[in-house]
Design a binder for these strands. Structure first.
Length: 157
DNA sequence: GCCAACGTTGGC
DNA sequence: GCCAACGTTGGC
């Protein structure tokens, strides 16, 4: 595990883009479009590096949890959906000369047997994960190397 | 700059 | 469908 590698948890609604959708995409890669929260945007814009590990989390569905592993696959660039007036993510206030919303590409690595939210809550090694904090709604959160390792252990059971 | 109203997220 | 939590908006 490369010491400089960072880790993230990224939420996606499987009805919009599931881990299987990402695996089926060209080069297993999707643009992480639609983030409209500044804190989450800032993680993509300022902190992510190509090759960072990603826990691909399914939210807003019957079985929320981590459904796959992925990695950051691009440097940051403007989210094209903000300029698309047919998109649900269209933002009239954002101008191409000064894009408000920035994304990265995410490359799916593998689908894993679902690690459910309940399973994660039951694991002491994951107790401090931001995703498990009461009231957390942030769609992108940093994951510590220890938490990443603890999640990988759960994939082998 | 305050803060109430409102909209969204997301688990259950 | 409910509702808690939280971010954003907008009046003042």
């Amino acid at each position: 595990m490369n010491a400089s590698r960072q880790y993230w948890l990224m939420k996606s609604e499987p009805g919009e883009c599931s881990i299987d959708d990402a695996l089926a995409a060209p080069n297993h890669t999707v643009a992480w479009a639609g983030v409209r929260n500044y804190e989450a945007r800032n993680f993509m814009r300022d902190a992510m590096r190509i090759g960072d590990g990603v826990l691909f989390y399914h939210s807003g569905c019957a079985e929320p949890g981590v459904a796959g592993l992925a990695e950051v696959a691009s440097t940051p660039y403007p989210d094209p959906t903000q300029f698309d007036d047919r998109s649900a993510y269209f933002d009239t206030a954002s101008k191409p000369a000064a894009p408000r919303w920035i994304l990265v590409d995410v490359k799916a690595v593998e689908r894993i047997p679902l690690i459910s939210l309940a399973r994660m809550r039951a694991d002491k090694a994951l107790a401090d994960m931001l995703i498990l904090r009461r009231g957390n709604r942030l769609s992108i959160t940093p994951v510590t190397p220890d938490q990443w390792r603890a999640m990988l252990l759960l994939t082998s059971r």
